[in-house]
Every structure is written in C-alpha cells, then in structure tokens.
Write a protein that binds this DNA or RNA. Structure first.
Lengths: 127, 127
DNA sequence: CTTGCACGCGTACAGACGTACGTGTAAAAA
DNA sequence: TTTTTACACGTACGTCTGTACGCGTGCAAG
C-alpha cells in the first residue's frame, strides 16, 4: 500500500489549493490564499516541501521555478481524515456525524432536496 | 468566551471516555480502552492532566485517588472539531461532508429511514 | 556590467503530541 | 511489622507543526 503519511491541518489547506488550481508554483499557491489564511511565502514553501516528503505531491524544476503537483486524490485524503475523525469522535458511527451536521449546522432548501434525491437513489440501489 | 484550547486527537479519545463513563479515575479510563487502543497507564494519566490543563476537565483527590470529570460537553467539542474540519477540507460546505459520508461510507437500512425522518421533520419546520 | 528582486534550499526554533519512566509514598497483603 | 502494590506527580524525549529567516544565485531592470 501507498503508506503515505497523514497530512496535518495546515498542510491540508495547501493540498486543497493544489487540487483546486492544479500543478502550481509556490507563489501561485501563496497568492491564492484568502485574507483569512495569509502566511509567509516561505511557510507555504515549507508546507509544500513537507507535503511532497509525505508522498502527497511531487515537483519538478521548470527552469528555475519549482512546480508542485498533487499526487493523491482528494477522495483518498478526505476519506482517511474523515474516517479518522468519525472513529475518534463518534466511535465509528458515521450516521452520528451526519446527524450532527444536519442538526447542528442546519441545511438549506437546496441541500434538503439534494439529500432527498440521494436517499431515493440509494433506496433504489438497495433493493 | 471560554477560551478552552483545542484537544488533540489522542486527548479526544480520552475525553470521550470521560463523557461516556462520567467522573472517573485514571484506572477506570485506562481499563475501559478497547484492545485497539491500549496504551500505558501513565500515558492516560498524562492525557488527563493535559485535558484538565486545557480546561476541558477538572479533578479532585478523593482520598488519595484522583477523580476526573469532564467540564465540556460533547456537543461543544464536537462542534468545534467538526467545524474546523469542514472548513479545512470542504471549504465550509457541510453538505459536502454529508454527501461524502453517505456516498463513501454507505448507509444501512436503519440509517436511511432515520435520515428520511429527519428530513421530513426539517421540511416541516422550514415551512 | 551592476544592482536588486525573486526563488530554491537549508536551517531554526518554540510549542504541541504521543508515549512513557522513575521516585516517593500511602494503602493493602502477608 | 515487613513487603508489595498502586498511584500521584514530575520529568523526559523524539517527532511533528506552525512559522519563518538567511544565504546564494539566476534573471531582469537600469
């Protein structure tokens, strides 16, 4: 198995950017960060380096600029992280998290119908 | 505001026990840990100490045994943790997490009807 | 050609984490 | 009473995290 080390919270913010904007330079990532998450250029650089060393990204020099690309799919990282949290906070019961999310954070019109559709579809498949 | 420091993953495993079994001694917590999460008695002790120092538990000596009690409700800790994760991994869109959970981890008969009930109820209230 | 900007890369460093050991002592067993 | 057991409490220690500085250098502007 891939054996990739888990990403820390901060690192995750950065891979997310990599997923969003595709292969990118440190600067591109840095500049894409919203107000609320400003950090030093070199901090981003360090994160990217660590993400790579953990096997979640690869990079190559393009001229003298280093370009990073994600190597793990969102799916994978998200799954691992979420599973871990469900395990730790809900004893593995993912329905508890679903319930928490809906009850605690609310859900809007659209979300509601979307959910309903999903349920209908699943019920079909289940049959 | 309460200003309680966030708990780490390991610490969360332990508070969860505190929530579950109520005020408890180090030993009680330690012994309630499942096979898969065995750790040294003194590790549990350290966790409990840290949890207390972060304001999420309090303790008193009962005779010469220290008894810890949770000071934060599950709700609060869970909310903070989940919000944080939704923020970092889903850009704040909690519905994305809900979808991920249902699609990726599946849902059983019971969960399905439970969910359906919840949706119906919410739809009522929303009106 | 000289100067300064932008970047790679190595290094730093304090605080959080996971994990535990050792010492002193009170209570229980022998 | 002597011995053993079981804790509390202080301390440790390597790793991970968040956050960044500084040096060396290629490249663009003057």
């Amino acid at each position: 198995m891939a054996e990739k080390q888990a990403l820390s919270k901060g690192e995750m913010l950065i891979v997310r950017k990599l997923w969003d904007i595709g292969p990118a330079t440190v600067r591109e990532i840095h500049e894409s960060l919203p107000e609320s998450q400003q950090m030093d250029f070199s901090t981003v650089q360090t994160y990217l380096r660590r993400i790579e060393s953990k096997g979640h990204a690869s990079s190559r020099l393009e001229g003298r600029i280093r370009v990073y690309s994600a190597r793990t799919k969102p799916q994978t990282v998200i799954r691992t992280t979420v599973n871990d949290m469900v395990e730790r906070l809900f004893g593995g019961e993912s329905m508890s998290l679903v319930k928490h999310l809906i009850e605690d954070r609310g859900i809007d019109e659209d979300g509601l119908s979307e959910l309903r559709a999903m349920i209908d579809r699943l019920e079909q498949e289940n049959k």
